[in-house]
Amino acid sequence: MGQGKSQFTEEELQDYEDLTYFTKKEVLYAHQKFKALAPEKVGHNKNAKLPMAKVLQYPELRVNPFRDRICKVFSSSNDGDCTFEDFLDMMSVFSENAPKAVKAEHAFRIFDFDGDDMIGVSDLREVIERLCGSELKLSDSEIQQLVQSVLEEADLDDDGALSFAEFEHIIDKSSDFCHSFRIRL
């Protein structure tokens, strides 16, 4: 994979290998995938910035209910547009080798829609609505009940919202998080 004339020098690859959870080959492979999103643009400039709509062409992102949040969280310009480095960051966090803590940190940001550093009632509602998809809708009271139950379970200090520590606690206790919060390259 990624043989032939590579767009990267050895130093750049080493740099990426140091800063992400990927090996050099995987970095090259990731770049292929990135290039496939917009062959001309990336072929011209290997670190080109792609608009969010283009990045969302990536199969796993396309169907993900939190796709716009993911792009925004990883975009270095905060508007959802991603350069290759942002994309590599994203894939590195979603890769198998990333530790739980790093994944949890990013997951927290993804689920924190209003950006107030807490997952509050409105965030939880949003999560539930997005998870159930566009066709089936839970009724308002059902969502209310779900949110209430989640807070009962996980809101250790009764402040009506989940802080990062509480969120991390949930993640720690769930065996499936690393399985589900993963996108293969």
């Binding site: 993900n64 209910p65 066709e135 779900l146 606690h169 499936d176």
Partner: peptide, 25 residues
């Protein structure tokens, strides 16, 4: 943390096909 875990770990980020995503939802 049964429900909370379902909420935050419920979506399988590896799903890539629209049909699969609809079924998962």
């Amino acid at each position: 943390h049964l429900l909370a875990a379902k909420l935050f770990c419920g979506w399988d980020f590896g799903i890539a096909s629209p049909a699969g995503a609809a079924l998962a939802a």
